[in-house]
Design a binder for these strands. Structure first.
Lengths: 332, 332
DNA sequence: TTGAAAGCGCTAACAC
DNA sequence: GTGTTAGCGCTTTCAA
């Protein structure tokens, strides 16, 4: 089946292609009867405008690039859901890119994004730092960052203040003299972890206390779990904060192996709330970061950027709530 | 910064745009010194070929559309990882589409796909049935289905024989006289569940036994869990098969509420293996469906379809293994 | 209100 | 080995 073009429709309807273009774009300067004529031709031929050609002619593609770390869908899944829902509303397509560790790979990804001439790029990525962004900025892409607080003429961001969340939680524990607080490393999210550490440290400093511990672990679940099993043989904490649910689970399981009961002897709280938090036993207390909203808002901001609407604020902070479940005892 | 085009490069290098086109496409009929000259111009100007224009000229976009159900990333995450890895190798971009229940929405998605002039579409979707596919076929899109067994001139598929998996598991239990087998419904994956039921029923039929139960449940985790809590008050099973890990967790938690111990009094096995299966306690036994491979193979097949390579087989079955963990007792 | 024609950036004959 | 030119399918001035 030969692809039907705007010419075919024009022919069929006995009008010029300019007229067809006008009706498919809903321009009001078309007489009703010719509009109908064209519509019928479109219908009859099953014509669908070629978005590629439109993209060339208009110099915009109504697609945006989304960049997330490879294998991160447990964390980014909800974000993507939010993103796509809003993208649908504004009729944007989403091209999905994932990045691995290598700087080479990242540059290749950026190169591909630039070649694809998307209208903007949304990034959820702890590691895509300012240097890499500059390449994107050279080409004047509107950029929305998810998770990192940052902005300038072409960059906006949507995030949750994890430093504050970490501070709040830690402070609540210090207030009741539960002073042995530890944060478990998350190698995949160095920025988030650095924020958490900063917040906890601030709480300690303000309380004039010491004893905060940062526990470095291997990079995957299996070895983290093994490591923690050993770690808990001679370490005790009142509260352990983790970034992801998987690390909280590793912690709880490792503690359990050492006959440390959660939450009685050691409380565990993680930062990211997934549906598994409520499914596992003990149910995981967590900061509920509004992932879906993070994605939805990011996409909404992007549409504003693209339509040159004024943004009253380019750094949008979303609030979290604390959801205490079974793995911890203190309410905030 | 004005977008630099192939003309600018041609000017800078004092050659025609055809020559520039040749070097960026790596055609061998360019003299070395002019190639170098052009490369330098490209470098100097920071030129990146416009994929949109290439798409128009070549009548292909080297992008493929991926369609998955909305909010399915827990299940499709791994598939997408595999898909993207292979897509990178062959330099294809992936446009992500999600579908919700409504038939209208689905048609809109298909419409958008057609407009976007992707080179092919890969679908993981229990509900996108033959009727909807026909629209795509009208436009001669190569299609690769993940999860469903189906094929014709333009359709290929990659799947795991869930019917057989379900049969195997059920048979193993019937063989040792554990005859009270139940399958928990999964409203989001009616096709998969129907296959599972079929397999279990076949095992029962062959063994000339009765007692297979299909348990219908509400659609979300929370209400499923509540429902199952009630259900287990007056129902006992030797083995419960579920599709997703979340349903297995709901089952285990509900059983536990009724003081039914897993796996001693009731064994639980699910079909899809996620990383959480090994993290929760008891660890979930499961059929390990090779999700990553499903995605990777699907994309590989797609490249073959697009390059007109002959496919010896258009229905590719991947094999599963059974991973017994703590929630069940019998090895297969 | 409609049509003619230039242009968006690139590829691929075809000619030189 | 390199240049010229006609598209690819659409939008958008500018005229009519």
């Amino acid at each position: 089946m030969k692809r039907v073009t705007i010419y075919d429709v024009a022919n069929e309807a006995n009008v010029s292609l300019a007229t067809v273009s006008r009706v498919i774009n809903g321009l009001e300067i078309v007489r009703e009867d010719t509009r109908v004529k064209v519509q019928e031709a479109i219908e009859k031929l099953g014509y669908k405008p070629n978005a590629v050609a439109q993209g060339l002619a208009l110099q915009k593609t109504t697609t945006i690039a989304l960049v997330v770390p490879e294998a991160s869908f447990n964390v980014t899944g909800q974000i993507i859901n939010g993103l796509l829902d809003v993208a649908k509303i504004y009729k944007y397509s989403i091209v999905l890119h994932t990045t691995t560790e290598g700087i080479l790979e990242i540059n290749e990804t950026i190169e591909n994004i630039i070649k694809s001439r998307v209208d903007g790029v949304i990034i959820y990525n702890d590691k895509l730092l300012y240097d890499e962004l500059s390449e994107l900025k050279r080409y004047q892409y509107p950029i929305v960052l998810i998770g990192n607080k940052m902005s300038d003429e072409s960059i906006a961001s949507v995030f949750v203040d994890i430093e504050k969340a970490s501070y709040d939680v830690t402070k609540a524990y210090l207030d009741v003299e539960k002073n042995k607080v530890a944060i478990i490393e998350d190698r995949k999210n160095p920025f988030a972890i650095s924020q958490m550490v900063k917040g906890a440290q601030r709480a300690f400093d303000e309380a004039n206390k010491e004893g905060f511990t940062f526990v470095q672990i291997p990079s995957n679940y299996r070895s983290s779990y093994e490591f923690l099993k050993g770690y808990f043989k001679d370490h005790k904490h009142d509260l352990i904060l983790t970034h992801r649910d998987s690390q909280a689970l590793a912690t709880i399981n490792a503690a359990s192996e050492n006959n440390i009961t959660v939450p009685q002897e050691c409380e565990v709280i993680c930062m990211i709330d997934t549906k598994y938090n409520a499914m596992v036993r003990p149910q995981l207390s967590s900061i509920v970061i509004p992932s879906y909203d993070l994605g939805a808002v990011a996409m909404r901001i992007m549409t504003k950027l693209l339509h040159n609407e004024v943004l009253s604020e380019k750094e949008i902070e979303l609030s979290y709530v604390f959801n205490r479940r079974q793995s911890s005892l203190i309410n905030l």
